[in-house]
């Protein structure tokens, strides 16, 4: 049922996946539903697997995936040509998952008075918590030294690029806890390097 894209225009050859993705986005901008179907066919699988790693509830994952492609349909020009289309898609998908989690379990207001209002109000604290330059080159190598709860926080911030507020919503923990865990991760890793 996923309608294959009509090969009318100059479709990039099968070898160049990235060029094909960009071609599809251009077609989506012209309201070509077949192009969106094709983009979905190419990306839904790996996005689902990766979303599922961030959230075990398949219902939320499916909703996030749905929202992702609806967002792509509405704003295909959101892709500015930086990096892979796939990476851009993941950026949307993981934030839609955050939105789904927010709807499902709103973090109680006032559980952490110091961070109410989120990162926008406290840019310096946000930047400090997310300053990951200390990780050095290899994030993957660092993971092994950390307990599971710190790994989790590090993955969604350093790999997925979420803000501490988004990470808090995704993981269902207060924002303050996200920051504390990042600090702990930092001190453990610095300890290890010494």
């Amino acid at each position: 049922m996923l309608t294959a894209l009509c090969e009318t225009a100059a479709v990039p050859g099968p070898g160049d996946a990235e060029a094909q993705d960009r071609f599809l986005l251009a077609a989506i901008a012209r309201h070509d539903r077949g192009a969106l179907a094709e983009l979905y066919r190419r990306h839904a699988g790996w996005l689902t697997v990766r979303l599922q790693r961030r959230c075990p509830d398949p219902e939320l994952v499916d909703s996030a995936l749905q929202d992702t492609f609806v967002a792509v349909w509405r704003r295909p020009d959101g892709y500015r040509g930086e990096g892979d289309v796939g990476a851009w898609l993941w950026g949307i998908a993981v934030r839609r998952l955050v939105d789904q989690q927010r709807k499902r379990r709103p973090v109680p207001v006032g559980d952490d008075p110091t961070v109410v209002g989120g990162g926008a109000d406290a840019p310096s604290a946000e930047a400090a918590a997310l300053d990951l330059t200390w990780l050095g080159g290899d994030l993957a190598d660092a993971m092994g030294a950390l307990p599971a709860d710190l790994q989790e926080v590090l993955v969604v911030t350093a790999v997925d690029g979420l803000t501490t507020a988004e990470a808090a919503d995704l993981l269902g923990i207060p924002q303050g806890t996200v920051k504390t865990r990042l600090m702990r991760a930092r001190s453990i890793l610095q300890e290890r390097m010494r």
Partner: peptide, 26 residues
């Protein structure tokens, strides 16, 4: 393993081939 997962996910951002591999295995 967590380290391996991070390595793969970082690779997913830059490799269309890796994405297709994961998609096929999915």
């Amino acid at each position: 393993d967590a380290a391996e997962a991070v390595r793969l996910e970082q690779y997913l951002a830059v490799s269309g081939e890796a994405r297709l591999q994961v998609g096929a295995a999915a």
